[in-house]
């Protein structure tokens, strides 16, 4: 027989990859899953939407932004649970008293011991604590260290280093075609004229994609003075930066 390997309920990996595109959770307790990422399971597992009835307290403990809790389910029970996302590469990451910020669309699942918070960068969430989480990427994740400038679309996330800042390549913008595009928008935005710049110590996670995975809503921010993106004054300020506005449009 030259067929693929056959797994049963016992031989499926425990909290490890089945292959590059699927992850097997050895469930004994609770995991949080993004909706639509479970492909199959063995055992006695129940799935519930988050934030109702007896599970309401989970929102307070693990989800610190109530608005996006609707996109998650909690899996409870015992068994082997297979996770996958549109045949994208899937990897698990362990955090040990750490924090990692990740594009919300890339995060598939995480252990209950981690808590999820909204990042100050729009479209990203931060996981804090100790535990395991599973994330998807277009192509294998490649780890690099700062200093580095990254096309926003190729960014999966970052750990331990300070949040990035925007970098504009003025040579590219000022060049004939770049200038034309900056003025007219013809040709679309590309990473060559605007990047996220990382400095300091830490790790940056890259994926090979110029077309990002669909964003998952991460919830809004409270309106108020001094909260980026929150108050009306703040959003006006952001809109003034052409590149950032374009980026937000693309990722939103």
């Amino acid at each position: 027989m030259n067929g693929p390997v056959v797994f049963d309920a016992h031989t499926l990996p425990a909290n490890d990859n089945v292959h590059a595109y699927a992850f097997s959770v050895d469930l004994d307790g609770q995991w949080f899953l993004q909706k639509g990422k479970m492909i199959a399971y063995f055992g006695d597992i129940r799935f519930d939407g988050i934030g109702h009835g007896p599970l309401d307290h989970l929102v307070a403990r693990s989800f610190h932004s109530p608005l996006h809790a609707a996109d998650w389910v909690v899996a409870q029970g015992r068994g082997k649970l297979l996770l996958a996302d549109r045949a994208f590469d899937v990897n698990s990451f362990d955090l040990d008293q750490g924090n990692l910020t990740i594009r919300s669309g890339n995060l598939l699942a995480f252990e209950e011991s981690l808590s999820l918070k909204q990042s100050i960068i729009p479209g990203f969430v931060t996981l804090i604590g100790t535990g395991k989480f599973v994330a998807a990427s277009n192509g294998e994740v490649h780890f690099v260290e700062p200093p580095i400038r990254v096309d926003p679309q190729a960014l999966v996330g970052w750990a331990d280093c300070p949040s990035p800042c925007h970098h504009y390549d003025h040579g590219y913008l000022r060049g004939f075609l770049g200038g034309l595009r900056a003025m007219t928008g013809v040709g679309g935005a590309s990473g060559e004229e605007h990047q996220f710049e990382f400095t300091g110590a830490g790790t940056v996670l890259l994926q090979s994609s110029e077309t990002v995975m669909p964003e998952q809503p991460v919830g809004g921010t409270p309106a108020g003075g001094g909260t980026p993106g929150g108050g009306p004054g703040a959003s006006g300020g952001l809109g003034g930066l052409g590149g950032l506005a374009r980026w937000a449009e693309r990722s939103g």
């Binding site: 200093p147 580095i148 190729a154 390549d169 075609l177 770049g178 590309s190 890259l206």
Partner: peptide
């Protein structure tokens, strides 16, 4: 190809060609 840069380090410039 334009738009194919994912990330870079160092002093690198990108110039679109007519």
């Amino acid at each position: 190809q334009r738009g194919a840069m994912l990330a870079y380090r160092g002093e690198v410039s990108f110039t679109p060609n007519l």
